[in-house]
Design a protein around this nucleic acid. Sequence first.
RNA 1: UGGGGUGUCGCCAAGUUGGUAAGGCAACGGAUUUUGAUUCCGUCACUCGCAGGUUCAAGUCCUGCCAUCCCAGCCA
Length: 566
Amino acid sequence: MSDNITESTVPKNFIAAIIEKDNETGKYDGRVATRFPPEPNGYLHIGHAKSICLNFGLAKGFGGTCNLRFDDTNPSKEEVEYVDSIKEDVHWLGFDWDDRLFYSSDYFDQLYAFAVQLIKDGKAYVDSLSAEEIRKYRGTLTEPGKDSPYRTRSIEENLDLFERMKNGEFADGEHLLRAKIDMASPNVIMRDPALYRIRKVAHHRTGDKWCIYPMYDFTHCISDSLEKITHSVCTLEFENNRPLYDWVLENLGVYRPQQIEFARLNLSYTVMSKRRLIQLVEEGHVSGWDDPRMSTISGMRRRGYPAAAIRNFCERIGVAKATNMVDFALLEFSVREELNAHSPRYMGVINPLKVVIENYPEDKTEEFEFQNNPEDPDAGTRMVPFSKVLYIERDDFMEDAPKKFFRLAPGREVRLRYAYYIKCTDVIKDENGEVIELRCTYDPDSKGGGTPDGRKVKGTLHWVSVAHAKEVEVRLYEHLFTRENPMDNKDGSDFKDHINPDSLKVLPKCYVEPILGDVQPGFKCQFERIGYFCVDKDSTPEKPVFNRTSTLRDTWKKIEKKQNAK
RNA sequence: UGGGGUGUCGCCAAGUUGGUAAGGCAACGGAUUUUGAUUCCGUCACUCGCAGGUUCAAGUCCUGCCAUCCCAGCCA
């Protein structure tokens, strides 16, 4: 279902430069091992795609490996539904972890043993202060913390307490295993960080085997070490944690990968924090994590974004350490670029206007051969039926058309793509003055869309034969949020205030080429002229879903606006 | 009033051991066009957060400011 990745070149970014240098100095004997370590507490979004492309791309580019590891150390937030979706999304993006699928929870026994080792070395202790007391003892950003009274417990007592923690003798929050580092450290993270907490919750993989769970800072570095990762790539907010990452491995005396941080992706007028994504789903603003308007990988997949487009996008935005805000237009460009090159282009009408070709025989039907994608000869051709009565897009007709309007208007001639030139001779209206039908004549000599006399026509319309077209329900998806506001929340507004109420429009009576009635899931096509494309039908198996690209919308309005401005 | 990062065109982002500012998006011109799409050509930073300094020469070195992000979960 995913596109294939055809090329694998060495990525060009500062992390690749570090790896290159390490390869030169033989730091890891030329070995390159990365990992993508999501916590299964939600669906993957476009920000994760950056990390996936980076980690798997680095591995691929240097002939190394990239593991998929679920960082599942907090059972109260994690679910198997999430691990399944994450695996699917990574695969769909075109990456493969082969047999290197790991879970932090696989290491719980080893992690426990390492914790015992630290206790035995006098480098960890069981604290019995309450959460609130611990917070007070930690000090502030500007003031040092102070030692817990339990910091000096004997090794024996610590060992005993920790084992009893594991055996479930205490309630949640009663005790906590902490590293004994420095309560006065200017780096707050180093002020005796928590290593293990009691949490009597079932884990999605280990069930109720454990009631104590290791913290991220203790787990992540050890997992990396056990998997012999060389370059542990993560986002900037973990920079403060790196000294702890190194401290744990150094004090355990085990293999030490290096942590490298990069800036996470921010996309304009888009939310990506898991908290807000969950909110959108739970409060019903969207149909689910994979709603086509979501910034999730699965949402973009349903919206028709090709995996290659997302990969190219991640390539284009680069990898650096400066906090960024990438314009959504860059993502859209990547999508259009991919669609333009590879998706079949069909015709469809979302707001039909009937056209009767008066001089065309009543019962005649012809078929015209269309190129599926004029830019891609390998895409092949298809036959499209044509007859006397057609539908065209309502926007493609204007009764009092300005000179610059190139489409159909009374007395004007246009081309029906790959079919004939037609001229509008009459406009029929209902009692309300609404245009309900156009009477036209066609030029039989213009068959195929060209004329012997070489006369030019400015407009080319898409069309559909009423007798042959499939009626479908089209869903028009726009961006979930309005594009006027940066959503920086600096004006005190909630991100939900920026939800675009018109982001989903359901159009019941639309008409498409007959061939589209058999559209398969995962099939994408771009509509001629108006730029709609079909996306998969995962959750609406009975009806095709359509979507349009942003730059092609409201074409005439844009042109008109531009001309007025002049 | 602490520590750790980052500051190159509207948005991303390259800038090698100092040698005289890549590329992409957006925008704006123009050509081609059976999608007003695509494609194509052209324009778009005398300047690199600011101020000093070193040097024949600094985005790249030094000093001092300023701005901004992250850290006080028994989250990751």
